[in-house]
Computed example of a mutant assay.
Amino acid sequence: MTDRGVKQGDPTSLRLYDQTAQDAAAAVIAAYSTSFGMASRLLGPRPRPHVRNIYALVRVADEVVDGPAAAAGLSPDEARAILDDLEQETYDAIERGFSTNLIVHAFAATARECGIGSELIAPFFVSMREDLSTTQHDAASHDAYVYGSAEVVGLMCLQVFVNAGMGKPVTPAADLVDGARRLGAAFQDVNFLRDRSHDEAALGRDYLAATSSRGEVLDRIDGDLAAAAAVIPLLPTDCRRAVTVAHDLFAELAARLRRSTSETGRIRVPDPVKLAIAARAVVGGTPRGGRG
């Protein structure tokens, strides 16, 4: 992220605006995800603000379809229009380098520096709109939804890992692309299983009913986690610890879901276990396999 030649001490500088946008993105993540916040702190200073910028935009879009907009009295059509506007503002901000929406401004700066384009952004917004109209998924719609809602987010982060601070963006290696997609898919399927009761009761959605049994979903998660674990050591060194923590937190969740006999209580990883997972990554531990 550059200041385009403005003076650092100028209170009206773009540098100050960029930093304020980054701070806003960091505040969104701190408010919504303690686990992600813990993992992101283990990123090096090169990729850390960019990953926060990505997740802040993702979080804001997700909130449009997951309750707050409806609680404010918006209809599905009005929520869809807001998503349309947010997507277009994102493209416009990437093109012009500025947005009055601080979260969009932060994301656009990351997209410009790291080579994140509409091929990744558009599928994400497609999946967000899907939440406004689809209540039960079959295997094909599940896979399309997971690609847009999770796999492309992993691919955006991979663009950051490879390109942040490096000049002209390059295309990541194919094995890293596959690992990023499979890690994103595993994260999403874990969330689907863990939040199934809430999604059905509060949102009227079932992402898994017509796709496969609980055991088959967990087997798929384990396979995706194992594939991702194999390529995490190939990531830049300032990214590996954080991705290992995120991977291992979800591997632990998957293991606890497999052991659980209840489908109503929300499974979580206790704080002492989270800290142990983080400590293991800090000292250089490799990602654990898919099964706990």
Results as ranks from 00 to 15, higher is better:
V162K: 07
R181W: 02
T261E: 14
A139W: 10
L257K: 09
A79F: 02
G290E: 06
T211L: 07
A185I: 06
S212Q: 15
A21L: 00
V231W: 11
L218C: 08
R59W: 06
A56T: 01
G285D: 11
G285F: 12
F161D: 01
F36I: 06
L183D: 09
V153R: 04
G5Q: 06
E89C: 05
K274I: 04
G290V: 03
N191G: 08
R52Y: 10
A144P: 03
H50D: 13
R291F: 11
R52E: 14
L42V: 01
V269M: 01
R181P: 03
A150T: 11
R182D: 01
M166P: 00
A278N: 03
L183C: 09
R214V: 08
V283A: 03
L253T: 13
V231C: 08
L249K: 03
R256I: 02
G67Q: 04
P68E: 07
D84K: 14
S13L: 00
R59Y: 03
L16S: 03
S141F: 02
N53E: 07
T244W: 02
Q188H: 07
D178F: 10
P47Q: 04
P49T: 00
R59T: 00
Q136H: 05
Q22K: 11
M128W: 07
M156D: 10
T237E: 15
C114S: 00
R256S: 06
A278R: 12
V245D: 11
I103L: 13
G292R: 10
R291N: 10
A229S: 11
T286Y: 07
D138C: 02
I94N: 06
V282R: 15
Q188P: 06
V146C: 04
R220H: 15
L203M: 12
I221E: 04
G165R: 06
L102V: 00
V282G: 05
E87V: 09
C157G: 08
T244C: 04
S141W: 07
D271F: 12
P47T: 02
A111G: 11
A164M: 07
G179N: 04
P11F: 07
G44K: 06
D271P: 02
L193D: 04
C239A: 15
